[in-house]
Design a protein around this nucleic acid. Structure first.
Lengths: 243, 243, 243, 243
DNA sequence: CATGAATGAGCCTTCATTCAT
DNA sequence: TATGAATGAAGGCTCATTCAT
């Protein structure tokens, strides 16, 4: 345990405060509204100070993306420890994803910016690999559960199917739903005002389609999900509910 | 039918030429490489002329997004006319979506920009409603098929389910897959190098999960898809295959 | 003869005006005092306009250096046409150099900046070669005279000597004198308040050292120089005398 | 002799270390690469410490210029002690100048910066007078020899000539040659790839032109120069040769 | 109608200098 | 006395938009 000096602590906090601010701005005004000038202004520090924390605008955005990706990975891994059937555990991951995107609605944007920057080699390799690790942890948590299911016979893969395919499917379903929410690209029909609530049901349908036992017709996954949230993410759920 | 004067025809063509160019640039260089200067330069016209066609940069991007959204709607509606079972017809829509995103990989970007601009009220209401119409046509094509299926008893909705939900699910699945492709946000696993090929199988699994008859275990939807492409989109498939 | 439109003429003039300004600023405040902002401000135009004429700060400095180098080349070539002995003609070149550095005291600076920029490849190859051409013309004018002298037997090269050596020597002598003037790197002695007046005498001594006939002990080169200035550079001498 | 406390000694050493570093950076990267941040970083001290030694960046550069000017003065004075004819001694000074500019190619730069700063009154008068003293010592060493030559009858001044003129001429010749080397402002002719080797021959021609006995046609000054280097500057020559 | 020079706000970044710890 | 985080004025450059020709 190395003791962190109060000074260093303060610096650390300022860094997080800057990231918090950038997050808010990204969310409220998109990429366009984000400039180092504005960040400095709103954070109440000088531009030079921002640059002491982040080597460039790209670096800042990358740090932002990595930070939330790390939290996501943590949530996914926690979800994977849920006590229940493999399918319940997978549902818990779905719940984690929902919580994450409720708490970090900017993440999409940040990851976009991250990719755009890393192409231009303006982001240190360190951050890129950190990001990759986060993705790996998320995907690993999900595929791990699916492999458990195969091992237990609760999931029987047909020819050409793989655990990776299933996980990519779930991932896509979630990404698409959150993208839709962000773009508000859905028609104004009474039936659908927000794609996210539908998401859980669609994910269950997808798992049913793969024959993952027990099917949603045989088990109450809504209840399982509620239990997962209560047991694993009480704090996060509270935070998500408040905003 | 009001006859279009040659002059107007010429203007129309120039407008399309500018949009073509912007599309190419968006595709090749992303947002960064897109400036009114460059568009005018490469289109071989002056900036003033570009501004005579489009009120602002945002307007131009919006026009671009609307144009491709219109093409998508057309593809979806054509897919809905596929001669086959309701589920085959729905698969044809999936094929249309894939073709569209192969031919217009920039569309995501454009729609993003569109939304950002329209939030800032920089886009005339006219274009916004045009965009909404496109979305409505796409969604309508899909929900129409699903309702047919319900009417024919090939799809039996359980409590709380709706045709809208199913269509949103499919839409999300596709959006997520194309987003993944664009961000290259997938882990480097031999099993998965591109999420798009998996997409069709996942979409079928989702439909299976909803119990849409006949299930993919009972029918060869890969063949149906191939037939749909051949019958409905021969030109598009060729264009997509070439690039 | 293509007629220059009034518009183009105006643009041309503005370009020259900007260069004039940069020249003055370079002279008065050195490299440090030169910024695109200030140039634009003082020229009474916007920054964007400056950038429409010059691709970058480096380009502007390069253009400045090339412009004066071109004038120098012109002066040297005119000097080479002086009607007199080869040594008188060489002295006329010395007079040209003196006039040049009186009229363009900033040139040293500009050339310095030019070299610094071209190393960083921020200057179009076109300008670099233009500069080289100027140097070549100057050097060519001088070596041409020296070769004439050799041909006429007025200059007899000893072993290891070459016309190039002599010309480099004269060039160095002049450069050094003007550098000294600019740096004011000379001691406060009654005998020497400005190195430039000594320059002519030293150049003659150098030529005497090479045995270039007729020696300065046998001929009045001060008078020859006066005649050269009167015949070749009346306007320049007047301009130089005024400032 | 006031004894220097160990503390003061340490401070002194640190000061020299910082100057060494700044010198290296100036040499390797030019003005651009020189910042107080970098100097502090590479010297392994904090910026605050650097500012304890030097009042400003200008002051640091001035100190650097003064330091090398002092070394030059020392070399010149040593050269003046060479055992030989007055003209051989003057040649030894030429050798000293060449060695100096080989060992301190940055000096030009530093002196330039020095002048620019002192104009802006950013350099304490103390340093300015220190610099003047250095120049005086250099010039004094040279004029001293020339006066010896006059006294011995080896140099006969004609009307209007002075020892100062001769020394300024030599100084200019050297400055010009080193400037040319730094700017690489010489044409790409097989005859001349570097003006410095020609320098010695041109200096001799200049002295011949003044009639300084014995003339270079009567004496081997190349050999004398070699002897001067061997006897007076063995260490410096070795250092110069190595790089 | 077309043109393209001019505009000027805004962007990212650097760096000499200060000062609380 | 040493430290180095904070400062903020500049600097170079871009680009959407306008308007006289």
């Amino acid at each position: 345990m190395r003791p962190v000096s109060p000074k260093q602590q303060e610096i650390r906090e300022r860094e997080q405060a800057i990231l918090d601010l950038a997050q808010t701005m990204l969310l409220e005004q998109g990429d366009q509204g984000l400039s180092m000038d504005r960040i400095a202004d709103e954070a109440g520090v000088s531009k030079g100070t921002v640059y002491q924390h982040f080597a460039s605008k790209e670096d800042l955005l990358a740090a932002l993306a990595v930070r939330s990706a790390g939290i996501r990975a943590e949530l996914f891994e926690r979800a994977a420890t849920f006590k229940g059937t493999t399918r319940e555990r997978m549902s818990a991951i779905g719940a984690a994803a929902e919580l994450f995107f409720t708490l970090f609605p900017h993440h999409e944007h940040a990851e976009h910016a991250f990719k755009a920057s890393s192409h231009a080699q303006k982001v240190p390799a360190e951050r890129i690999s950190a990001m990759e690790t986060c993705h790996f942890r998320c995907f690993g948590a999900a595929t791990g559960i699916a492999r458990d299911a195969v091992a237990k016979g609760e999931l029987v893969l047909r020819e050409g199917q793989s655990v990776e395919q299933i996980c990519v499917g779930l991932w896509n379903l979630h990404m698409g739903a959150f993208l839709m929410r962000d773009l508000e690209t859905f028609i104004d029909i009474p039936a659908i005002t927000d794609p996210v609530p539908l998401l859980f049901a669609n994910a269950q349908a997808l798992l049913d389609g793969f024959g993952w036992q027990p099917l949603s017709t045989q088990h109450d996954y809504v209840a399982a999900r509620a239990r997962a949230v209560a047991e694993l993410f009480p704090k996060e759920a509270k935070a998500a509910g408040r905003s």
